[in-house]
Design a protein around this nucleic acid. Structure first.
Lengths: 209, 209
DNA sequence: GACACAATTGATCGAATGATCAATAAGGTG
DNA sequence: CACCTTATTGATCATTCGATCAATTGTGTC
């Protein structure tokens, strides 16, 4: 990086470079590692260029968090919605995604987000938005399954908050140290199945986790 | 604080002052606010005196976290163990403590701890120790209740990890924004009661939450 | 191929952090 | 009440952070 030939890109390209670099830094080393100089170095560019495009670093951090959170939600949403018709199977797919291993880096980003949001107002706002989006997505699944009679979810939003909050805690836990992942996954499925009063006929499916 | 008369205390007293100030700063403004100058100002002393007693600030942060975590665990332990004989009631008391409102500041400290532990090895070590202590405490309650036949907990440690992880996530959630606390508390009790197969005769008690 | 626009850089500032050390003075001891 | 140990301080340094701005230079355009 010491003496690169200076290349000139369009603002759109450069902006994309900056966001991409910031995103990967956040996933690798945490949100607090998304610093002007770190991003500049990864892009291969002078530090001043970063603030030239971003105005305030706090905003970049908030946007990076939004990118990561939305990308994750979109991915889980796509996976879940690919399961059509069978609402019970949709819930099981959702739970599998929620506690899956590869959520590790994302879970750490959420952890950083919670912690940093106390000192970064924009981040705090984005965090609330994204958490709400997650809750509404999960609540929608519950509400549709309830309407279809596949299970019972009279309070879909409250239950969604419970499931999201609890699984967040569990992924954060397993992101930091390993052990008991299988038992935890089993408890999650068993718990949610009971809360949804999933009929006994579907028990074999839930028991397979 | 500009021009206090210089007072000279014994190392033990001063050390206690420093720890106490650092503890209250952590509870009020987070672990990352526990800085050399902030602690010095609260104690009413020159910044140099802090490092004179602590050697490295990272260590002070780790010790403060340990203090707070141990104090909280001791408090909950005392409350739970005050309920003698009735194991079901012990579990209900535990759950009430785990999701109680005043855990808010402590929950934020845990959040900071998780986030900071990536860059502070001592803190990471303390964090793991304290989390293990929590899990063992909860597992002990489950194991004793199982042995007494009050409920069924064949995997007390795995279940303890599940309960602690999930309630951590839920307190973190409610520490950042409000809403649905009552429903959440109800779901927690309902969930754990089902997982422990608490006999139907105790349902009225669990339903009151 | 020269020119002008603007993307990019180097230099530099101010604030906040942890850390060190010689100098100072508080207060117990004789 | 003087003295001596050592708790305490003031000054200072090295880092790291975000931010600013005049100077530079790449590149599309004419």
């Amino acid at each position: 990086m010491t003496n690169q030939k200076r290349v000139r890109k369009t603002p759109e390209e450069r902006r994309a470079d900056v966001h991409s670099a910031a995103r990967s830094i956040a996933l690798e080393s945490g949100l607090s590692a998304v610093t002007q100089r770190a991003v500049a170095e990864r892009v291969g560019v002078a530090p001043a260029l970063i603030t030239h495009y971003v105005s305030r670093m706090e905003l970049l951090v908030a946007e990076v968090f939004r990118d990561i959170a939305q990308e994750e939600l979109a991915s889980v949403r796509a996976t879940v919605e690919a399961v059509e018709g069978d609402e019970v199977e949709q819930v099981l797919t959702l739970l599998r995604e929620l506690i899956h291993d590869f959520r590790r880096d994302v879970a750490l980003v959420w952890l950083d987000g919670w912690s940093l949001s106390r000192r970064n107002d924009e981040l705090a706002g984005v965090l609330v938005e994204e958490a709400r989006a997650w809750e509404e997505f999960v609540a929608g699944i519950f509400a549709r399954g309830d309407a279809a009679g596949a299970f019972s979810a009279p309070e879909p939003l409250a239950l969604a908050r419970f499931v999201v909050g609890a699984t967040d805690g569990l992924s954060a836990q397993s992101a930091v140290w390993a052990g008991y992942e299988d038992e935890t996954a089993r408890y999650v499925v068993e718990t949610v199945a009971a809360l949804l009063r999933i009929p006994a006929g579907d028990a074999p499916r839930t028991a397979s986790y």
